[in-house]
Amino acid sequence: MIQAPAPRPAPEEPEATRRVADDTESSRANRGWWDRNADEYQSDHGEFLGDSEFVWGPEGATEDELQLLGPAAGLHGARILEIGAGAAQCSRWLAAHGARPVALDLSHRQLQHARRIDDGRSPFPLVQADAGVLPFADASFDHACSAYGALPFIADTARVMREVRRVLRPGGRWVFSVTHPVRWAFPDEPGPEGLAASASYFDRTPYVEQDENGHAVYVEHHRTLGDRVRELSAAGFRLVDLVEPEWPDWNTAEWGGWSPQRGRVIPGTAIFVCVAP
């Protein structure tokens, strides 16, 4: 009699910890995490993001209303690099306004979703690459942007700033949104438990999820507001605006630790608007 194979044990949940994680470990872990979770991410958030909208963060602020890259009419013909593009929703919005975007992401699976939205015929280049080593010539873009892409998952973000500055032409804008740094001090919870500080804002030790062998499977890095300003200044950028979107009354959605309750009390997103002299 042939016996049925014994059921495999369910994989253990990753252990959450705080420890050092360098560029190599962070890149490997986060590329794998986004490849595994891209389907769920696009399923959960695709409707909110839209197929061709430019949404800066969970609050729902859009480039249509903020015009942080400049007036939409002025984007016609501009070559724009989107970093951490995911399914390239922002690049699709840029292309619809006459720009010539290039969508870059570390995750192959995220870029496959971009191809899915475009029925396999992307109207602009899709590039799989690390944001810290941009595969482009010097001064090859008019502007660069990133909506919650790449930066939280990279250990050496100062290098990313230098790389973006290298590929931008003089006068180009670099506009990026990230989780507001103050959120690092609070639990990532949407309810009242997320309104009491539980950690030091100044603790820059990365958040790491690791498997039973101690190998990182997800890494997130923290920089204070001052850290970001110093990185930008050292790379040669001039910071011209820092936008902290308020939570709008129309937005009743919860997105992880972002929610109406928290969003009306503490900022959830920081958008840095910079110019390359």
Rank of each mutant, 00 (worst) to 15 (best):
Y218L: 02
E246Q: 10
E220R: 11
D211M: 10
D249H: 11
L225F: 12
N251R: 11
L239N: 01
E246V: 00
W250E: 10
L225C: 10
R223M: 08
N213V: 11
E246L: 13
V229P: 02
V217S: 06
V243D: 01
R230N: 05
F237M: 07
R230T: 08
Q210K: 14
A234T: 06
E212Y: 13
E246R: 00
A235T: 05
V217K: 03
L242T: 13
H222Q: 08
S233W: 01
D241N: 06
H222D: 06
Y218C: 00
T252D: 06
W250P: 07
E220F: 06
H222V: 04
D241F: 02
Y218E: 02
F237D: 01
T252A: 03
V229E: 02
V217P: 01
T252H: 14
L232S: 00
R223T: 13
D211C: 13
H221N: 07
S233K: 07
W250S: 05
T252I: 11
E244G: 07
A216S: 05
P248L: 05
N213C: 13
H215R: 15
V219L: 08
L242I: 07
V240Y: 03
H222W: 06
V240E: 05
H222C: 03
L225K: 10
T252Q: 12
L232G: 03
V219P: 00
D249G: 08
V243L: 02
N251P: 12
P245A: 03
V240Q: 04
H215E: 15
N251S: 14
E246I: 04
L242G: 07
A235L: 07
Q210N: 09
A216Y: 05
H222T: 11
A235S: 10
W247A: 07
R228G: 00
G226W: 06
W247F: 13
R238V: 13
D241V: 07
W247E: 09
L232V: 07
V243W: 03
R238A: 14
Y218F: 00
Q210C: 11
R230D: 04
H221A: 11
A234P: 04
L232R: 06
V229Y: 05
L242M: 06
D227L: 06
P248Q: 07
E212T: 15
R238K: 13
V229W: 01
V219Y: 01
L232H: 01
V240T: 09
L239R: 01
A234E: 13
W250L: 09
H221I: 07
G236V: 02
W250T: 09
E231Q: 06
H222S: 00
D249T: 14
E220T: 11
D241S: 10
Q210T: 12
G214T: 08
R238T: 09
D249R: 09
Y218I: 01
N213H: 15
R238I: 09
T224R: 13
A235K: 04
H215T: 15
H215K: 15
